[in-house]
């Protein structure tokens, strides 16, 4: 059953066409990725979903149109957006605080998750004291404790070094298996999309349209070293080929 459904969503900033035609859906408990080149308009799509911008086309959640007031999404912006002046614990409870949850209750909800997110013992630290990976986990914790219907993750690991990124991807895959969040992830990393997702929407360069929808048939837990590694590699190569040689018939245009 699909929870989020976008039909022919378009968006232009002034004369600049950013999203040409986006249709996609995300089912309950499904992990879906949007994969596309930088500047394609991926973050813009999240701005439409969170109500920061308005576009054309239909956006439905549980078959009802999205409006500014229905808060279905917990949104993690492209940079971690941790507040430097708040300690880690207070950063992670921010969303609950905005929802009107009292400080003690908010902390009580975050507390049992701290260990799982590798942040136990760092509650009283400031963000600047943490490594990049820990900061991303703190930002992710701040996002998931809001307990919204769906997670919107905008390139959560984009700023990390390759090794930390790989570690974080494995960690996130494991976390997702425990929690089964309904999630929409933005990335420009083919490997990341294949490793984490149930389905992938491959976007063209700006103005973005869906080039291909790909179901990832790999079993979970995903194992980057096991028997399915070859299958994953083949899928990655296929997706890379779609990104690098988009079909002219699909309406790819240069700008």
């Amino acid at each position: 059953m699909s929870r989020l459904e976008l039909r022919h969503v378009r968006k232009a900033f002034g004369g600049l066409d950013v999203l040409a035609d986006i249709s996609l859906s995300v089912g309950a408990g499904e992990f879906v990725s949007i994969l596309g080149p930088s500047g394609a308009g991926k973050s813009t799509l999240f701005q439409l979903l969170t109500g920061a911008e308005h576009g054309e086309g239909e956006m439905l959640f549980d078959d009802t149109p999205l409006d500014d007031h229905g808060r279905h999404f917990a949104f993690m912006p492209q940079r971690d957006a941790l507040m430097p002046w708040r300690r880690i614990l207070d950063n992670t409870t921010l969303g609950l605080e905005v929802q009107g949850v009292g400080r003690q209750a908010a902390r009580a909800r975050v507390a049992p998750l701290l260990a799982e997110f590798g942040l136990a013992g760092f509650e009283r630290h400031f963000p600047a004291q943490l490594s990049g990976g820990m900061r991303q986990r703190a930002a992710l914790l701040r996002t998931v404790v809001q307990e919204r219907d769906m997670l919107l993750l905008d390139e959560p690991f984009g700023a990390l070094d390759a090794l930390t990124r790989a570690a974080m991807q494995r960690w996130l895959e494991q976390m997702w298996r425990h929690h089964r969040w309904t999630a929409l992830l933005i990335t420009h990393d083919v490997r990341e999309a294949v490793f984490l997702s149930d389905r992938i929407y491959v976007l063209s360069a700006r103005p973005a349209r869906v080039l291909r929808e790909i179901t990832v048939p790999l079993p979970r837990p995903r194992d980057p070293t096991g028997a399915t590694a070859q299958q994953a590699g083949a899928l990655e190569a296929e997706i890379l080929d779609i990104l690098l040689n988009p079909q002219p018939s699909k309406g790819h245009d240069h700008d």
Binding site: Q47, T50, G51, A52, R71, F73, A74, F75, M76, P77, Q78, R79, A81, M83, L94, G95, V98, Q99, Q146
Partner: peptide, 11 residues
Amino acid sequence: EIGQMLRAMGA
């Protein structure tokens, strides 16, 4: 990003 995130949270 902090502003966008807070608005998405409902602030």
